[in-house]
Design a protein around this nucleic acid. Structure first.
Lengths: 142, 142
DNA sequence: GTAATTGCAAATACTTTGCCACGTA
DNA sequence: TACGTGGCAAAGTATTTGCAATTAC
């Protein structure tokens, strides 16, 4: 172990011109400790941040860090929920443009089947399925 | 081609005890024609549904159909946006319980690399990355 | 006829912004 | 000191629900 991941992340932010604030350090530490994606609400009410700062501050930090590429916002383009029809025997993965939000189905055979089988066997999860999305900037938006 | 996919989907709903309403047919047709996931707003304002029924109707149809397994709602458990830290050289896929919403990182090597490369070459998308999530019911919730 | 479905309008939930005070560099 | 950040409160956007009227079966 060279350096703590938290320090490393803070330094990275410093290098991007961000100021070293209490909220920044606590937010990065929280995300790193959690080892999983978190929502604004979860972060704002987490032990390290709850009494530390306002929800709006966490919100703006998330925006800022996402804009600088330190964080990534998961999920499809819009803020709204997406629904898709389940057709027996059919499965689709998607390619989404992060610029214009265009979504297209991918026809290529899905390469995840074996891993899904492995997860089914090792974790005991029932009714397993997956979602796979590719994101990038489409030629038009580039 | 045996039967139109729309008719097939409507019949499937009938078999589940749902009534054959105009809104149901138009919603299924819209989703099938679009060949991609759609949001409540998109659906409610789509050509086939806009003058046909209220947004609340579309909303409740989506709930009902999702409950019966005819549709699937994409994305993570909560309605809120999820953020994750990007650590250079690290990539994570996730396993999510659809019951309790628990999210865990998957350590297994990601099997999507080759397909991502292929997409990069064939589509001309820039800055390509992907998200892969497995969903199921965890042992505790089962 | 009866229960599922719908429309309208009101209530929530979560996100986003304005404005001024504050703290880091 | 100067400008990025933060707090508080209000506004915005999407979702969700109550209830009476309607419609499929």
């Amino acid at each position: 172990m060279s350096e703590s991941p938290v320090k490393k992340a803070v330094e990275r932010c410093r290098g991007l011109g961000l100021r070293r604030t209490r909220a920044l350090e606590e937010l990065l530490a929280t995300l790193i400790e959690a080892k999983r994606p978190m929502t604004l609400s979860e972060l704002a009410s987490s032990a390290r941040l709850a009494d530390q700062c306002d929800k709006a501050t966490v919100y703006r930090l998330l925006q800022r860090l996402t804009g600088h590429g330190v964080l990534r916002r998961l999920g499809l383009h819009e803020r709204a929920a997406y629904f898709t029809l389940l057709q027996p025997g059919k499965h689709s993965d998607y390619l989404i443009c992060t610029g214009c939000g265009k979504i297209e189905s991918i026809t290529a055979p899905c390469p995840v089947h074996d891993l899904e089988e492995e997860i089914r066997e090792t974790t005991g999860y029932k009714g397993l399925y997956h979602e796979l999305e590719f994101f990038g900037t489409c030629p038009k938006c580039a």
